[in-house]
């Protein structure tokens, strides 16, 4: 399931719901992204997350479908917030439920790595020196790149070009 929303989310309730009534789930992996205070002097710097309504949902759904294709998941969840956020606020929740931990942990890492390079969100930081758009990191591209070849357990990579 994917959700794009302005309001905060309840981590406990969301994670509990992932396995609710499904006793084939053996483990749930999760990643929670928070707003980090980037101002050097500790001054309160808020940020505004802009996104592309329509394409955001489409991209997140495609990323989730890809994770479901690669790993045996009982359930998965992506919640991404937009709008004005303060340091310490939750931005994103990615969670995966599977019979076994390896699938859950790998799929969770895959989802956040791909989300960071494909989901159309942009951060604008309001610091003491004024507002500026956050620059994309090449390390994020590298993190996403390691998932470029499908490696789902027991599945051969379909004829994609090998890195």
């Amino acid at each position: 399931m994917i959700r794009v929303q302005q309001e905060d989310f309840d981590i406990g309730a969301e994670l509990a719901r992932l396995s609710d009534g499904d006793h084939s789930v053996g483990g749930i992996a999760s990643f929670i992204g928070l707003v980090r205070d980037m101002t050097p002097d500790g001054a309160i710097g808020s940020m505004t997350l802009e996104h592309y309504p329509g394409m955001t949902e489409k991209q997140l759904a495609a990323i989730e479908a890809e994770a479901q294709r690669r790993w045996p998941l009982q359930a998965s969840l992506i919640i991404h917030r937009y709008g004005r956020l303060a340091p310490g606020d939750r931005i994103v929740l990615v969670a995966t439920a599977s019979a076994h931990r390896q699938a859950a942990l790998e799929a969770c890492a895959f989802l956040i790595d791909w989300l960071k390079t494909k989901a159309p969100f942009w951060k604008m930081e309001d610091g003491t020196a004024g507002a500026h758009w956050v620059e994309a990191k090449t390390s994020d591209d590298a993190a996403a790149e390691r998932w470029a070849r499908p490696e789902a357990p027991g599945e051969k990579a379909p004829g994609k070009k090998q890195g």
Partner: peptide, 28 residues
């Protein structure tokens, strides 16, 4: 992006398309 899918510069465009221009994404 054309009609909400990432595309390369050689991708065709036509009247009626929704074309979006944006910098590298920074969500998550």
């Amino acid at each position: 992006a054309v009609n909400q899918e990432y595309v390369d510069p050689d991708h065709p465009v036509q009247l009626g398309d929704e074309v979006a221009l944006f910098p590298p994404v920074t969500g998550g």
